[in-house]
Simulated scan of single mutants.
Amino acid sequence: MPLASLMFVAPLLVFYELGVLLLGPEAIRNGAEVWLRQILYTIGLGQYFFLPTLTVGILLAAHYLSRRPWYVRSATLWGMLVESLFLAGCLRVLLGLQAIAFQQLAQHGLMATGINIWSRSLAERAVAFVGAGVYEELVFRLIILNLVVGMARVFHPTPTAAMFSGVVVSSLIFAAAHHVGAFGEPFELFTFLFRFVAGIFFALLFVHRGFGIVAGAHAAYDLLVGLV
């Protein structure tokens, strides 16, 4: 339910945006957010609060089109929190299994920045990780995955084939995006493959559980790896 996703993600969105404003130049901006702001600035919509407002507007519009009731039970939101934490733990286990397969230490995370994030304060890292959960899922799942699925429907006769294309392509873009641009990380096969697998994990969550769960699980995973 888009309304449940909005209510669940709203505290994360507020935490990130207020954290960035309070930290000022010390804040670690999420790459996906920066890309979106550059696009909006190019078309004359560069006001700071336009992007979070647009995010809220997209989810409200999706809920309106779904024709579902305009209420969410508190038990639903608590359930989403528990599910997000559980799924973050599952992804952490998946990373550990891949690390064993590669015979490497499991000290690789989903950090969408080439900055030495470990030298930053706890608050700076927490803000960055929460921002990744919200804005990376907005870009790579809510926008790119749906766009790829829409285009694939032109070439694939079945919805399943189109969805498969969307999941794979969006996950490849998600993995590759961490290695491009001024703040991109040096390419490593381990991290690229893990992010590709994580992209598939998040894409399937988005398809079957919605934007709120995948954003929560992504933020929880980053916080788990980056802070704990």
Rank of each mutant, 00 (worst) to 15 (best):
Q103M: 10
F164Y: 03
V82Q: 07
F140Q: 03
F183R: 07
L21D: 13
F49A: 07
L36V: 14
I28Q: 09
L54H: 03
F155Q: 10
G150H: 11
L77M: 00
G57W: 06
I117M: 12
E124V: 03
L193A: 13
A106R: 03
Y71M: 07
I143K: 04
R153H: 00
E17M: 11
L6H: 03
P2I: 00
V168G: 05
G31W: 03
V197I: 15
L193K: 06
V130T: 02
A88Q: 06
H178P: 12
A123V: 14
A162C: 09
M80L: 13
T158H: 05
F187D: 01
F102I: 12
V225F: 15
Q98H: 08
T158M: 04
A99P: 04
G114F: 08
G199K: 07
F140N: 04
G24I: 14
G181P: 03
L51Y: 09
G57V: 01
A176D: 02
E188L: 13
N30K: 04
A217S: 15
L172N: 08
I43P: 11
E124C: 05
F206Q: 00
A88C: 14
I144M: 15
L59A: 01
H179W: 01
L122G: 07
V56T: 09
A217W: 03
F49M: 14
L87E: 09
F129C: 02
A112I: 00
T160C: 05
A61R: 01
L145V: 06
T113G: 10
S165Y: 08
R195W: 15
L23Y: 03
A10G: 08
F206I: 01
Y16G: 07
Q38E: 15
F140D: 05
F15H: 05
F190K: 02
P52D: 01
F155S: 07
P2D: 00
V72P: 10
V214D: 08
F190I: 12
I200P: 08
E136W: 00
L6D: 02
L189M: 09
V167C: 01
I39K: 10
A220C: 10
H218T: 07
A215V: 01
V180L: 14
Y16V: 05
F86W: 14
V130M: 07
W78G: 12
Q103P: 00
M1E: 03
N146G: 07
P52E: 05
I143W: 13
R141Q: 09
V127S: 00
L21I: 13
V127Q: 10
E188M: 14
A152D: 07
H208S: 02
N116I: 06
H179C: 03
P159W: 07
L3N: 08
C90D: 04
V20G: 01
G24R: 08
G19Y: 06
F8C: 00
Y41H: 11
G96H: 06
E136D: 15
N30T: 06
I143G: 08
S84H: 12
A101R: 08
L85I: 15
F206V: 01
V228M: 10
R68E: 12
G199L: 11
Q47G: 05
R67V: 04
V149Y: 02
L95E: 09
L223T: 09
Y221M: 06
F164G: 02
L60E: 05
V225N: 06
